[in-house]
Design a protein around this nucleic acid. Structure first.
Length: 530
RNA sequence: GCGCCUGUAGCUCAAUUGGAUAGAGCGAUGGACUUCGAAUCCAAAGGCUGAGAGUUCAAAUCUCUCCAGGCGCACCA
């Protein structure tokens, strides 16, 4: 439980309001003149009354442990809280004690979650646009597991349908040495590679071998990217198990299906009816997809998260199909990722799969490395378009945020190493064997002097996993980046003032721990030196 | 035309999900290198949050209408 929750609970208890309504809306205010935490509860609690009076009344009822909160103030109805210094110090020590576990929680309560992402057609190498889904999905799984969910990552292989037929024919054409590939087929060099390997191995199972090669390569690429999938599920298996037929049968039973133009259609409430079975007798992708989601649910997952691209417009029929087939609506959570565009120092990079001028994820990894790639893909919230500057990602300067974050950690390590030797000296001479754990001095609370806000560090991981806004975790990182904010000539971490020095050492250690924990959640290392 | 997403400093983006004076970085301007790592720091500048209405104690945030941009609109997946 973090500070905010503790405080909110204490307030609730002392003013005698129950759970849920109204909830205590605690905010970390913008200016330090408004304290460490602030709430606007007085504005909402008794409508129609003067908020200032309400706040005064509330404050008189609030009984908080002095060891916890120093001061409570009423400013025009806002109630501001100042935390006790030694309490904050304790929080910093907690960070160090909890180490890599700091920030983890059990808000998931062991709920089984399945996150499905990337899931491309196995018709070619993974391209860089898949990198966003891979980064977001993998990080989401890490965050979920860190916060008490039991989350698995799953890759759905669309190994059926027209695209795969085209893949098969393309390989066959190359195998036979043809220069012309079928209309709409795949012209890439990798097809030739697969064909020549097949010749070498005397294979003729174009379809199976093609899929196997491409998926095998995807696994290698994802491994390089630090992305792991627990399950690989094949559409062909879902079909073999008869799931799609069952789905159509259920829909038929409910009278939601009709025939038109030789095809089988699903009635939609908005009138935008969708084809389920094509006139050639094959399912459209929708039916196996519904069957697949039912399969996930039947495997015991209580929450299904899908990462979709903005072009995946079959959400309405998927949701409708699932609820008709008995999967509760709230089980499925779809996160739509917007497009990524790539540029080099502002110069746009065109990308066309058809012209063969796409960049593969492997090429991106070769060029900028795993860590910068992962970081950059996470810098925007899912619903925003992301502009990925490949030149910037390669830079080893402050302009490159991933470099900067790692640099802060490395620099802290360097300072600690430097301080280590002199600390021994001091302990012998001045500490007399006392506990070297520091005191947080009042001046440490002043962000201008300490370079960062202690409670900001503590709250860093206050997770918003529940509403899937976990990208927010990114933001504090760029706020804590600067442990050397003070003028280097006046406010060094290590100085002749022993207690202050020790306090600052604890602070920067905590900062390093928090950075390291945050980075590991997005699959990035925190090097000791660079 | 319909659907989804986005419009915030010159540029790239934040803003604790409806809270107090809308903040960072880059760029541009002026300064600082006998450095606990200059791979850096400091200072001042920069805004009618695309436009307009509405909801309320309070709106960049919610609603509606426009305007501009991105993407999609298959019996492809």
């Amino acid at each position: 439980m973090n500070i905010k929750h503790k405080l909110a609970d204490a307030i609730k208890e002392s003013i005698g309001i129950q759970e849920v309504q109204p909830h205590i809306d605690l905010v970390e205010p913008k200016g330090s003149q408004f304290g460490d935490y602030s709430t606007s509860i007085a504005f909402t609690l008794y409508r129609g009354r003067n908020p200032f009076e309400v706040a005064t009344e509330l404050i008189s009822q609030i009984k908080l442990d002095i060891a916890f909160v120093d001061k409570i103030e009423n400013k025009g109805g806002y109630i501001n809280f100042w935390l006790n210094h030694s309490f904050v110090q304790q929080c910093l020590n907690n960070i160090l004690e909890e180490g890599a576990r700091f920030g983890s929680s059990n808000i998931g309560g062991g709920k089984k979650v399945l996150v499905e992402f990337v899931s491309t057609n196995p018709t070619g190498p993974l391209v860089i646009v898949s990198g966003r889904a891979a980064s977001v999905g993998d990080s989401l799984v890490r965050v979920l597991n860190y916060t008490g969910f039991l989350a698995d990552a799953e890759y759905y292989v669309d190994d059926s349908g027209k695209q795969i037929d085209l893949l098969e024919e393309s390989i066959k054409a190359r195998y036979n040495g043809l220069e012309d590939i079928p209309e709409g087929g795949y012209p890439g060099e990798y097809i030739k590679d697969i064909a020549s390997r097949m010749k070498l191995l005397c294979r003729a199972d174009f379809r199976e071998f093609g899929i196997k090669s491409i998926i095998g390569q995807a696994k290698v690429t994802l491994e390089r990217f630090g992305v792991r999938f627990n399950n690989w599920v094949y559409e062909s298996d879902i079909r073999k198990a008869g799931g799609p037929q069952k789905v159509v049968a259920i829909l038929e039973q409910k009278g939601l299906v009709y025939q038109k133009d030789g095809a089988v259609w699903l009635k939609m409430v908005d009138g935008e009816d969708k084809v389920l079975i094509k006139s050639d007798g094959d399912f459209t992708y929708r039916v196996p997809d519904i069957a697949y989601h039912i399969d996930k649910y039947n495997r015991g997952y209580e929450l299904l998260i899908d990462l979709f691209g903005p072009d995946q417009s079959h959400i309405p029929e998927l949701k409708a199909g699932l609820s008709i087939c008995g999967v509760p609506e709230e089980v499925l959570k779809i996160i739509t990722l917007q497009w990524v565009t790539f540029n080099r120092g502002g110069q746009k990079i065109g990308m066309s799969k058809r012209k063969g001028e796409f960049i593969t994820l492997d090429e991106l990894l070769d060029e900028v490395g795993k860590e910068a790639a992962r970081f950059f893909f996470l810098t925007r919230k899912c619903e925003s378009h992301l502009d990925f500057d490949i030149e910037l990602a390669k830079q080893t300067s402050k302009d490159n945020p991933v470099y900067y974050v790692q640099y802060v950690g490395a620099r802290i390590s360097s300072i600690l190493k430097m301080a280590g030797s002199s600390e021994d000296r001091r302990q012998r001479t001045e500490d007399g064997g006392q506990n070297p754990k520091s005191q947080i001095l009042p001046q440490m609370r002043d962000p201008e002097k300490s370079g960062t806000n202690s409670n900001e560090v503590q709250e860093f991981k206050s997770s918003r996993v529940q509403d899937f806004k976990w990208q927010k975790e990114e933001n504090p990182k760029t706020q804590i980046l600067n442990p050397n904010e003070e003028n280097p000539n006046e406010e060094k971490v290590v100085s002749e003032n022993i207690p202050l020095t020790n306090a600052r050492l604890v602070l920067i250690k905590a900062v390093r721990q928090v950075i390291s924990n945050g980075l590991s959640l997005i699959g990035i290392g925190a090097p000791e030196e660079m």
